[in-house]
């Protein structure tokens, strides 16, 4: 007769019993709990009832086109903006009612530079440290370590106005990390950086996370950057339209995506659906077909509609495809919406 198995030290109650039994220790600590967040600027609704949880230790990317509400959400998380309604808890503290308590846990790197350009890198960090209650030898040791860590030691005594954009950005990051925040908030941190500086920034962020398990929430409008997140929260028009790991989000499309430009996309889409049985729809002027084994359909498409097709691309699903699936329009009509593997 099998012996009953020893109970796990911290049993997790089924959801239905959660209200009756004492709350179990959560398996994954919640760093940020956002519920029904709404805000408007005049007539424009910036956040339309957004709810989202961030797990401790993860890198969550807020991805959205300009005007999607991600910067508004960022400002609310950083306690710089009071929303019209909703609630935000940061490591359990009510960040809207008691912002002062939540601020202890936060390290914030805004999109706009927040350094004093007339002060040196060291002076900026010293100022920052004192605002967070650090002083004396402890502060100086941390500054030295941060400068060393971010490769800034040699330029420490120079005023910010004499540093390049990439170096200044690194000082910003050092500033945000100096007091060892549990939650690091980064708003479009690589904006204005050249590709090399961008790559360096990401490498630094990766190593910081590897060392400290800091929870990171980062906004971006660049899809290739978003892919570096543990999870991506996709925002559009103030709503959460998708949430998940990059691979999982793309997997939900399944298989391949064929995109066809044609003189008359509506007619071609109808003809493709009628002839091949694949759902074809028109998104931003192009015919899109999501299917498994797209390479088999491509030659048949070209043979069937030789004169109607202007050009055709076959690719693996991208985050833009996820965005299209959820919103019915492309992420952006500019360069950001380009497809990966479009030239295949």
């Amino acid at each position: 007769m099998p012996r009953p198995q020893a109970l796990p030290a911290r049993p997790v109650a089924p959801a239905s019993f959660a209200a009756l039994s004492p709350p179990p220790a959560p398996v994954l600590e919640t760093a940020v709990h956002i519920e029904a967040l709404r805000h408007r600027f005049g007539e424009r609704e910036a956040l339309a009832g957004l709810s989202l949880d961030v797990t401790a230790g993860e890198l969550l990317v807020l991805l959205g086109p300009n005007g999607s509400g991600k910067t508004t959400l960022f400002r609310i998380l950083s306690t710089a903006l009071l929303p019209a309604s909703g609630s935000v808890r940061i490591f359990g503290e009510d960040a809207l009612r008691h912002p002062a308590r939540a601020r202890r846990a936060l390290g914030v790197v805004f999109q706009a530079p927040s350094l004093d350009r007339k002060l040196t890198a060291v002076e900026n960090l010293r100022h920052q440290g004192r605002l967070y209650g650090l002083a004396g030898r402890e502060l100086e040791a941390r500054i030295a370590a941060a400068l060393e860590r971010l490769g800034l030691a040699e330029r420490a005594a120079e005023r910010i106005e004499h540093l390049s954009g990439g170096l200044a950005r690194r000082v910003e990051l050092a500033k945000g990390l100096l007091h060892r925040p549990r939650l690091l908030l980064l708003d479009e941190p690589t904006t204005g950086l050249d590709p090399t500086a961008r790559r360096e920034f990401w490498d630094l962020l990766d190593s910081v996370r590897a060392e400290s398990r800091t929870t990171v929430v980062l906004t971006t409008h660049l899809m290739d950057e978003a892919e570096r997140g543990d999870r991506i929260a996709v925002l559009d028009a103030g709503r959460l339209v998708a949430l998940g790991a990059p691979a999982a989000l793309k997997a939900e499309i399944g298989g391949d995506v064929i995109s066809v430009h044609a003189e008359d996309p509506e007619r071609l889409a109808a003809a493709v659906t009628a002839r091949f049985g694949h759902a074809a729809r028109v998104v931003d002027g192009a015919v899109r077909i999501e299917l498994v084994a797209g390479h088999e359909l491509v030659p048949r498409l070209v043979e069937a509609f030789p004169s109607a097709i202007r050009d055709l691309t076959l690719g693996k699903p991208t985050l833009d495809d996820v965005f299209v699936r959820r919103t019915g329009h492309h992420f952006s009509h500019g360069g950001d919406g380009r497809r990966e593997g479009a030239a295949r």
Binding site: T79, A80, A100, V108, A112, P113, S114, Q128, L131
Partner: peptide, 14 residues
């Protein structure tokens, strides 16, 4: 305007 102030305002300082 330059951004310095918002860094101060989100610090845990009265």
């Amino acid at each position: 305007a330059e951004g310095f102030l918002q860094g101060v305002l989100v610090a845990p300082v009265p």
